[in-house]
């Protein structure tokens, strides 16, 4: 299990408008492409160098591919990263202010303290 890699996916997709749209419309394909092409990118380095060992496990891959933010919370993905990206994906469908943000919280209502550990 790699909370770091989940966070890296959320971080890299969130900062790229094109990837945000691809993740909204074709999440399974985007996750597969990202894991193959981007997961081992060493950020903040010159291109041409990469890591060799980073991959999702099946649970993580499924959670991302199904937009399952409740599972991501359970797995310890950083809640700020998940929230920010998912607002970008779905806030546009709101019919009233904060509708998505409130329903996002409501879907997590079964969690009590302490929340899943987010330390990486």
């Amino acid at each position: 299990m790699s909370k770091y890699l989940l966070n890296k996916f959320l971080f890299m997709v969130d900062r790229d408008p094109e990837l945000v749209e691809r993740y909204r419309s074709e999440p399974g394909e985007l996750v597969a492409w990202w894991e193959a092409e981007c997961a081992n990118t060493v950020l903040n380095c010159h291109t041409g160098e990469a890591s060799t060992w980073l991959r999702f496990d099946d649970v993580e891959r499924e959670a991302l591919a199904t937009h399952d933010h409740v599972k991501l919370f359970e797995l310890g993905a950083h809640p700020f990263l998940t929230l920010t990206l998912f607002i970008a994906l779905f806030e546009r469908d709101n019919t009233e202010p904060l509708e998505y943000q409130k329903s996002y919280g409501a879907r997590l209502a079964h969690f009590s303290m302490p929340y899943p550990d987010i330390a990486t």
């Binding site: 700020f80 929230l83 904060l98 919280g105 409501a106 997590l108």
Partner: peptide, 10 residues
């Protein structure tokens, strides 16, 4: 403050 958790946006 709660962000990305059940108590957010109250």
């Amino acid at each position: 403050l709660e962000l990305g958790g059940p108590r957010q946006f109250g």
